[in-house]
Design a protein around this nucleic acid. Structure first.
Length: 422
RNA sequence: GGUGGCGUGUCCGAGCGGCCGAAGGAGCGCGCCUCGAAAGCGCGUGUUGGGGAAACUCAACCGUGGGUUCAAAUCCCACCGCCACCGCCA
């Protein structure tokens, strides 16, 4: 949510930001109008209410006939107050709904444009040249079968398209990845967390997933729950409606949870394998910090993501995501894209966003120190999203016979240096 | 799922439908006292929103939302949460 006081004074900043995102700048003017209406309604109501408060006191003191007359007048006043209050509530709800439509203000450094207008910041590692190894790489589906690691056919049989089983070494690989991720996060000072995956509407709304992203959220209507698409949601909402001690910041959490995504509008995209699935597990980093520290924190989260990929010995690149592809909450976002040999392409495996105070304002998360109470900044970043990491590891570290070498960092967690054929 | 109890300020804890933003205590801050500290004494100590340059002022907030009333922390209803016991259960 945008700060209405800031918006009143800087409407042009918001208009420019909306345009940069490819969103409607006219929302800014609708917000201003609804804010005006809101304030008028508040003033009207409060004036009447003040009158009523005074009047009511005089009734208490009066007696007999005089009292009867006052009671009559009181009824009229009461009705007027009630009506004004209804108008006030209506205006407040309308103004709130209007301002929720505004996306976060773009970081001026974020590249402007659509999904394909990202800027490549750097390459780490070099894609492996399979011609030198004299064999054609197999894709992760084939490798998964040979190793007894991934079963997509039975996933489809039981749960439908975009579901899978991790079996044997596939399951062990997930545990190894999670253990490595959590232990390195703990070493870096993160508090490990296992979060709920069913959340109530305010948590979903507050993190900004019920706007444009709503169609990708599973909703249990009967019970008024949402299935989270990322533990960013329960991690952000962890401190909902709280005032944090500024001395305790930054607070860093590493959340492990299952993630559920409807993947609406992706028919025909990534239909093979486990690149794009409805359910997967992920370790997510989440930071609450002072707004002035957020940009530096964003770099730290990115660095932890790079460290992870480096430890997995995966060649990757880092991109500065373009304005049109940021999502409503982020001011800036970096993606790490791993090289996927059989696709001969870099594919997103992790992502980190700086939301500044946008989510905190919606979730009502503030900080208090010597100075006044104000909103915190929130940032999130993927440490490891299991299926895509499995794809990257299998495909990049495969041998001609279909066996796969285990990255050194994972070997202590797996007790082996190679996945063998079953 | 059933029965009973409870939900007030940072915490504990009072509260007759008007004089309650709310007694009393604790904590915290400042001051006095002291060589210093403790104790004691005095003063102060919430949040959000509207108006205002500011001083300040008005409104709202006693789990949440409705209702009754001229007037609700106080009465009524619903919901949520917590605690206890029973039943069922991984």
């Amino acid at each position: 949510m945008i700060d209405i006081k800031y918006l009143r004074e800087n409407p042009d900043v918001l208009r420019t930001s909306q345009k940069g995102r490819g969103e409607d700048p006219a929302i800014v003017d609708r917000v201003l109008a609804s804010d005006d209406a809101r304030r008028t309604a508040i003033a009207d109501y409060e004036a009447l209410r003040a009158e009523q408060n005074l009047f009511s006191k005089s009734v208490g003191a009066a007696k007999g006939e005089e009292r009867e007359a006052l009671l009559e007048k009181g009824k009229v006043l009461s009705a007027a107050v009630k009506a004004a209050e209804a108008r006030k509530s209506e205006a407040e709800v309308a103004a709130h709904q209007e301002i929720l439509l505004l996306s976060n203000i773009l970081d001026p450094k974020a590249p402007i444009g659509g999904e394909e207008d990202f800027v490549v910041l750097e390459h780490v590692g070099t894609p492996r040249d399979f011609t030198k190894d004299n064999f054609l790489p197999k894709d992760h589906v084939e490798l998964g079968k040979l190793l007894g690691a991934i079963d997509t056919e039975r996933g489809a049989k039981v749960s439908g398209a975009r579901f899978y089983y991790l079996t044997g070494v596939g399951a062990l690989l997930e545990f190894a990845l999670v253990n490595y991720a959590i232990s390195s996060a703990v070493k870096a000072g993160f508090i490990p967390m296992i979060t709920p995956v069913l959340v109530k509407p305010p948590a979903m709304e507050g993190t900004g997933f019920l706007g444009q992203a709503a169609e990708n959220v599973f909703n249990l209507e009967k019970d008024d729950f949402y299935l989270v698409g990322t533990s960013e949601v329960p991690l952000a909402a962890f401190h909902m409606d709280e005032v944090l001690n500024v001395e305790k910041l930054p607070l860093r959490y590493a959340g492990y949870s299952t993630c559920f995504r409807r993947e609406a509008g992706t028919y025909g995209k990534d239909t093979r394998g486990i690149i794009r699935v409805h359910q997967f597990d992920k370790v997510e980093m989440f930071t609450f910090c002072k707004p002035e520290d957020a940009v530096a924190e964003h770099q730290r989260l990115l660095q932890w993501e790079k460290d992870f990929l480096t430890a997995m010995e995966i060649p990757f690149r880092v991109i500065d995501v373009a304005s049109g592809d940021l999502g409503s909450s982020a001011t800036r976002k970096f993606d790490c894209e791993a090289w996927i040999p059989t696709q001969e392409a870099y594919r997103e495996v992790t992502s980190t966003s700086n939301c500044l105070e946008f989510q905190a304002r919606r979730l009502n998360i503030r900080m208090k120190g010597a100075e006044a109470t104000s909103h915190v900044a929130t940032l999130n970043g993927t440490l490891v999203a299991i299926p895509r990491m499995i794809v990257a590891i299998l495909e990049n570290h495969q041998n001609a016979d279909g066996t796969v070498n285990v990255p050194v960092a994972l070997q202590p967690f797996l007790g082996t240096s190679r996945f063998e054929l079953v």
